[in-house]
Design a protein around this nucleic acid. Sequence first.
DNA 1: ATTAGGG
DNA 2: CCCTAAT
Length: 748
Amino acid sequence: MKLKKRLDCRPHGFHVAIIPKAPRSIRRRVQPKKTDEDGEVCAFELLASLARQILEEEIESSSASSNASGNDHAAIGKDAVEDGRQYEDKPMKTECLDQGSCEVSAVVSESASLNCNQKCLLNEFPLVEDDDILQRTSKTISSNSSSKIRGDLKSEICKSNMLEGNFLSKAEGGSPNYRKSCFNSMENEFEQPVETKAMDMGGLNAATTRNSKDSAELCMKFPALTDSDKDVKLPSCRDPVPNASFSMQRNDIKLGIRDDDDNLSRFNKFSNKLKVYRPVTRIGDRRIRKLLTPKYWKSAPKLKDFEHPRTDGGMRPSHRKRKTCYNHEKCHRDVLYKRRRFYDRSSVETFDGGFSCESVTNSPEKGRNRDKSISGSMLQANGMTSSVKGHQSSLRSKDSNVKLSIKSFKVPEIFIEVSETATVGSLKRTVMDAVTAILGGGIRVGVLMHGKKVRDDNRTLSQTGLASEDNLDTLGFTLDPSSVEAPAPPLVCPEDHPLLLSDASQLVARSLETPALDSERPNALTDLALLTKTETLVESNHEQEISHTDILTDTTLPDSRALVPVPAPNVEALAVVPLNQKSRRSDIAQRRTRRPFSVSEVEALVQAVEELGTGRWRDVKLRSFEDADHRTYVDLKDKWKTLVHTARIAPQQRRGEPVPQELLDRVLAAHSYWSQHQAKQQGKHQATGVLKIEAPTDHPNCATTGNQLEACLYSLKDGAVEEVEDFVVVVVSVYSQQVTACDVKSVR
DNA sequence: ATTAGGG
DNA sequence: CCCTAAT
């Protein structure tokens, strides 16, 4: 099937796990491995690196003023080399980089006639060039690349490129030159949503098609600097000249902070790429809707989505998705998802991508941190996501100290928009500012447990349940900007009146200095805060809203002017989605408002399931929720699912309106019963007869044995007479009555 | 349209 | 709740 296909396409000798087109769960789980194994590069290091570059550039550009292209060459080359050395010590790699830089120069000059901005950008990070180089030198490199991650990956990528190139060539009826197609393939890879078919007709054409207008847009975006994908890419900004083969390819500017891992993840995309091409026009509402779904907003460590501006002013989400690392079950918790929505009127551009990086705070100095190491935890920064990935398991020292280790720290997405005429230097500064704002803006730490904010600062860890290893795994942190006040927006009207946070026309018109999209506001953080808050309110459910409120008014938090907490593991914040004022909603199906099941509803559901079983949701619906229009059978099914889950987890871990234990018990009982008896006796138990199960209500074991007893009862046939525990029961019809421990009476 | 599962 | 695949 798909899987096979893909496998066939992939290059040999490629070790990196390819995400097979298998059940999501599987796919997801496959990737994880590597994420962590290739040693993560400290995000801060990256940032530092970036900063360094920026500074250097700044100096350089200031001294050399405008026309930076010339200087850039040298600078870039240098940077590249340094960069390379910094992350790798292998001569080979360095060599590789060197070549890369050389190549860069060449490339640059070649494209000198093109739009300068792009050209300049091109210099920044010789990622593309490298790839290009690699492409040519892949053979040599790959042959002896041995174990060097870098080397391997690169060569792999090259291979991949070639593969892709060929593929595309074919698809397009033959590409004129290899390099070109190769490049395009690369481009596509970077710009294309892995799982969507957003791009029109495959590489070349697609790129060409979009060229003209896109270039006009100031769409310089910085996708994410993700943990393993620490490259800043600047998609779009294509050259208006479609036929300039070379330039065209070059116009897809990508800034990449190369890094050991990035290739890895990037490469992964290749595997997904092959199946991507499909006409955009095919994308229907549903598609779009899907794209706007949290699922696709997830910008996890290795995941990044961003959308292309659309020439027609409409929204054309072209995103890319990367599977996240799911190292063990815990991984998903490490993944921070962030949603961003920008509501803007005029120009409809969707930016969903960002700048995020992860740093590994592998503080070996456990001593320094005392006994604090956060394991299996994550840090989430509101507005600016940052997450901490923890070690696999929580350690617990004898002295009952809780050991936590914050393994990684993810810095969020940063949206940057720069004018087409902005200088590279300013761009860098912009990035720098953004990063600085985030890191230096002052943050407040929040603690999450099971995704819920732990608000009481006075409680002890054990009281909070954080002393338990189990809970430790769900421990999370949030980094909330503490420097700004985020007054609750006057709008809490989720559906009908999405907040318009910014005016795109303005955004586009000028270059922004901060990640904030609303250039009208002076303070980036404020914007973030507002956005976050808004987003949350718009999206959140009641519970969340409540907790938010609580938090905002929580006096135990001195400077709790922080933003709303981000619900984990589904962290969503700062979602920015273009909103075309009017009819946007019709296009974008809104997520249904959340409507928590009331206890009575649960009761009805349980009742129905007890009688009908777990595989007849439609009947359940008809039977007990006929009038509840908002409850579909799918909802019921889902609810049951969650009920079962809820019943299984510790009461402590349960959230939302508490469901009576009694009901949960029944859930479990019914569930186990129906699990065994599948659909066998469908309808057989249709309420008839009277339950005659008797046991002393006051029997000491009644309560404790309740579940077991009940479970046993469910396994009995109607009319059966059996001994269960200390009881003798006569079952006339288990489902004709609600069976609970207390209903059991002794027949003896 | 339903069901079953993964997310 | 959403999304999909499979019925």
